[in-house]
Amino acid sequence: MKTIVIISSFILAGVLTALFFGFNLASGTSPIEYDDDQEGISEQVIIRFSHVAAENTPKGMAARYFAKSVQAKTNNEIQVEIYSNAELFQDQNEWEALTDGKVEMIAPATAKLSTLFPNWQVLDLPYAFPNNKAVQEAYEGKIGEKLLNDLSQSKGEGLGFWYNGFKQFTNDKRPIIEPEDMDQLHFRTMPGPIIEAQFEAVNASTSELSFNKTYQNLEVDFVDGQENTASNIYSKKFYEEQQFMTISNHAYLGYAVIINEQFWNKLSESHQKTITTSMEETTDWIRRHSIEINDSHIRELKRTSDIKIDVLTNEQKKKWKKRFMPVYIHAEKSISPSLLKEIKRIQEHYSSP
């Protein structure tokens, strides 16, 4: 009898063990139920887009237009987060932030790249572009293609160029009409050998200062003046610390839109195509709208500020161009001859007879 009880106990224990382990094995290999919301979060691509301009400038508007376009085309699979007004990085360190992967996109002024890539100085040449059509041919033609190719040796992938407008002079000392009026004035500038040579040609001194520190330096009279587009002069309120403005159109301010190369290469072919398409659409949009944005800001400056605005005549511009000729000789030392030849061709093609 005792033997029967022992045997029964072993059988019962075996059945229970089999049931226990069988249950756990079954539960361990059962499919995991997916959560659609969680899956969407894990697969969403975030692009941190840092720039230093105000939101109501051509670059600020273009950034928002681009972000909306990308998000709409990808059904929000890609989210572009805009950080304007140097919220994350100043213009001096945004390139480093991009190449270190701290942000995925930047849109620096083309001049900011001239110290890293000498050929980019070609876009800073004074009176390089007679009109907006000439700028477009440079940005979207042979010059733009060559400059974006120069970035292939870096950690940045060039997506294209965005437009702002022609630069004007402002200062707090006197009207600037003739080249001699620049004598002994001190200007805030962006970095770049060509820009420095431009001011040296008219006997003015310069300090390379962050865009978002310009107002403070004008306020404390560390510098007498600066050069910029009407949209930047208006949006950053430089007119509050400047008495005189000259519509000179002596150089053009535009931007290179650059994405981190490693990040770009990890994107799917479909996402790359979408970003490229949105970039092309945004470029077309800002090319058309940047002119009106700057014109409207000039009208606002005339209507709401006390700054005195002078407009150079064609005859006066000829004097400035003659004074700036040494800058072109200086450029031959560091800029590709083919680029200088193309700039000359564009100038001749679009100059008035």
Score class of each variant (00 low, 15 high):
M1N: 14
M1G: 15
I6C: 02
I7E: 07
I11H: 00
L12K: 09
L16S: 11
A18M: 15
L25N: 11
L25C: 05
A26P: 04
I32T: 15
I32Y: 11
I41F: 11
S42D: 12
I47M: 05
S50L: 01
S50M: 03
H51Q: 13
A54W: 04
Y65Q: 14
T74I: 07
N75M: 00
E77R: 15
Q79L: 14
V80F: 01
V80Q: 04
S84C: 09
S84Y: 12
F89C: 09
D91W: 12
E96Y: 11
A97G: 10
L98P: 08
D100L: 15
K102H: 15
E104V: 07
I106L: 05
P108Y: 01
N119T: 01
W120D: 01
Q121C: 13
Q121N: 15
Y127T: 03
Y127V: 02
A128R: 02
F129P: 06
F129M: 03
N131H: 00
K133A: 11
Y139F: 10
G141H: 00
I143F: 03
E145Y: 06
D150V: 08
G165H: 04
F166C: 05
Q168A: 00
I176Y: 05
I177Y: 06
I177R: 07
F187E: 08
P191W: 00
G192M: 05
A204H: 13
S205W: 07
T206M: 04
S207L: 03
L209K: 09
L209E: 07
N212V: 07
Q216M: 12
Q216R: 06
D221H: 13
N228P: 10
S231Q: 13
N232D: 13
I233Q: 08
Y234W: 15
E241H: 11
Q243V: 09
I247R: 12
N249C: 06
N249M: 06
H250D: 08
E261Y: 08
N265A: 04
K266I: 02
S268W: 03
K273H: 12
T277G: 05
S278M: 04
M279H: 08
T282P: 09
R287Q: 06
S290F: 02
E292L: 12
I293M: 11
D295F: 06
K308F: 02
V311I: 10
V311L: 02
T313H: 05
K319Q: 10
K319S: 09
W320Q: 07
K322D: 14
K322I: 07
M325I: 11
V327L: 04
I329G: 06
P337Q: 09
S338K: 06
K341S: 15
Q347E: 10
S352A: 15
